[in-house]
Structures are given as C-alpha cells and as structure tokens.
C-alpha cells in the first residue's frame, strides 16, 4: 500500500511539474467552453445586405426599412444593377442583395456558398419582408429544451466527451510509454511491485484530474454559459465515471502497442482525436452521414457518452432513457480492459 501511495505521489508530481501541459489541460476546457458557448454559433445576424434599385420609391423605402430595423440584417450599400450586387457578393462585401425589379417584384439574391446559412438568411428575410401575419397561421412551433437555440446546449456534452477522452487516454498512454522509452520501466518491472499496480497507480492521478476537469466544465456551463443541469447529478457523474474508465482502458491499450512517445501521440491523435471530433456527432450530426460512416461512428465511444450526456444534462431524462448508451459503454470498457490487461507485457518486447 505504501508503495502504491508513493507511486501515485510520484505520478502527481510529474503532472504538476510540467507547468505548460497543466496550463493547457486546464486552459483548454475554459477556452473551449467560451468558444463553443459564445463564438461558435450559426445565429443569423449582421447579414450584410445590398439593395439594388434604380430609384427609391415608397415601396422600396418601406421594404428596406423593414430589413434595416430587424436585428438580422444591415444594409450596406445601394447599387443600380444586379450585376454590381453580384460583384459585391463575390468580393465578400455583401452576403445578400435585395433586388427590386421594374415590374414591382422583389428578388432575394443570396450567396449560396454556405447552403445552410443561405437557407436561413432567405427564410429570415422572407419573414421580415412578407406582409403575412403569422399569428393567423394555424401552425404553432415550439422548441423543446433549448428555446433560445443556444449552441452551448449542444456543445457542452460534446466538449466533455472530447476532453475527458483526450486527457485520460492520451495522457496515460504517453506517460506509460515515456517510462518505456526512458528505461525506467525496466526497473519498475524488475522491482517487487506487481505490474498491475504500476498501471493502476498511473491511472489514479489522471482519474482525479479528469474529475477536476469534469467538475469545472459543469460549473462553467451552469454559471457562465447558463446551461441548466436538468438531470440527476448523481447519474451524470456515474455515467462520466464509466466513460473515464473506458478512456483509461483505451489509453492503456495504446500504451501496450506504442513503443515511443511519438507513436503514442500520433496514435492518440489519429485513433482518438480525429474520430472523436468528426464521428461523434459533436459538430456534424451522425444521421446526415452515409450508412457506412454511421456504422463506423457506432464504434466511437464518445458518441455514446455525448448522446447520454445530452439527454441527462440538457433534456433531463432519467437513467432509464440512457440505458442503451450506458450498456454499450460498459460493454466497450470490459472488452477494451480485458484486451489491454491480457496484452500488458510483464517482460520486454
């Protein structure tokens, strides 16, 4: 037991002494939360609109004013011909143009480069311009869970999924491989300490670190971003713990395969980071991908965690509704851990 504690202390010192890495580890969540919470949005605002008209009539005047008064659009320029407007858009001086034609018609000319935004801009512009009173329509829309459509609601669980995976898997694998590379692993193996204990002792500080980061993310999301924690806190933490264990087993597995830090880094980056960002549904919805990729995405652990967290944290459902995700994660943990321990070398080579 004394040896175990000495080990944990040693490992903790390694982490604490490397100030730059520490700074990144704790700075990363903060910056990510701020970026995703505030900066990464697809809100429609400040759409630069050019007006194309040969002469200002009361009719055009009214339409232009409507646009200008809305919070979404800013009128930047008035030009005479649609060609001029097109040039403005091409030069990135305008995103959209409102064209008044001779025969009292109106046309929205929009930069279609980004199909999503183009779609949204035109929808907003139409609503702003059209005289139809929407209150008369029998259609009533309601946005559940996230009525203000804050992107933070979507991203907070995703950031948790990414960072926990990164810290647990990447950091543990690198720290084990570093001992191999520096030759200290030989001494540890020859010492009377059981190899399994070496591994567990290595994982403990990262487990604590992961929890620290988890808590700070939760606090930030609640008090800085104003994302409510709607579900039971106990289950959020319990599912997170399972996920952390999953990530640790993955890190252990990588450390068995990799012989040098460089390989461990590249493997973590390619096996973990890329799929996590791309296939976990963090930024790009999995449902929109082709079938083959959806199958591939089914193998990415953070996918299940992120989905479970979105449900637990944001939608506030009970543990029963995430049983599927939890079961998959538990299964993955058992399999990965079993392989990692079986493959763990008590000898060199």
């Amino acid at each position: 037991m004394k040896q175990f504690i000495a080990f944990v202390i040693k490992e903790t010192k390694h982490i604490l002494r490397d100030k730059r890495t520490m700074l990144i580890l704790f700075g990363m969540p903060v910056v990510m939360m701020l970026l995703f919470g505030f900066a990464i949005t697809t809100d429609v605002k400040n759409v630069r609109t050019a007006v194309v008209t040969s002469e200002m009539s009361p009719r055009t005047q009214q339409a232009v004013e409507r646009l200008a008064q809305s919070e979404y659009f800013i009128i930047t320029q008035t030009v005479n011909t649609p060609q001029e407007a097109e040039r403005l858009i091409r030069r990135q001086k305008a995103d959209m143009a409102l064209v008044f034609t001779q025969n009292r018609g109106m046309q929205i000319m929009v930069d279609g480069s980004d199909p999503n935004m183009a779609q949204q801009w035109t929808t907003y512009a139409r609503q702003t311009l059209s005289p139809v009173n929407f209150h008369l329509s029998p259609v009533n829309s309601r946005l559940l869970y996230n009525p203000q459509m804050k992107s933070a609601y979507n991203f907070v669980p995703a950031i948790m999924g990414m960072l926990l995976m990164l810290i647990c898997a990447m950091m543990t694998s690198i720290s084990i491989v570093r001992e191999k590379e520096k030759g200290t692993m030989e001494v540890l193996l020859v010492s009377p300490v059981r190899p399994l204990m070496v591994i567990i002792a290595k994982a403990v500080p990262y487990l604590v670190l992961a929890f620290g980061i988890l808590i700070s993310i939760l606090l930030m999301s609640r008090y800085v971003l104003g994302v409510p924690i709607a579900g039971p806190l106990f289950w959020i933490l319990a599912v997170s713990t399972l996920y952390i264990l999953l990530a640790l087993s993955l890190g252990l597995l990588i450390s068995n395969v990799a012989q040098t830090q460089l390989v461990a880094l590249l493997m973590s980056a390619m096996v973990l980071l890329m799929p996590v960002v791309m296939l976990s549904g963090m930024i790009f919805p999995v449902e929109s991908m082709p079938q083959v990729l959806q199958w591939l995405a089914a193998l990415v652990p953070p996918r299940y965690y992120i989905q479970a967290m979105r449900k637990l944290m944001i939608m506030g459902v009970g543990i029963r509704e995430v049983a599927h995700e939890v079961a998959v994660m538990a299964g993955m943990t058992v399999v990965l851990l079993a392989i990692a321990l079986k493959k763990f070398n008590v000898r060199l080579e």
Binding site: T42, V139, R142, L143, Y145, S151, M315
Partner: peptide
Amino acid sequence: QYLIAANAVNGT
C-alpha cells in the same frame, strides 16, 4: 391546429 415541437438541444 398544428403544433410542431422540436428537440432543440442541437439548435440548428
């Protein structure tokens, strides 16, 4: 009357 209720966790 039509009521549309959308899960807006993913706002977009």
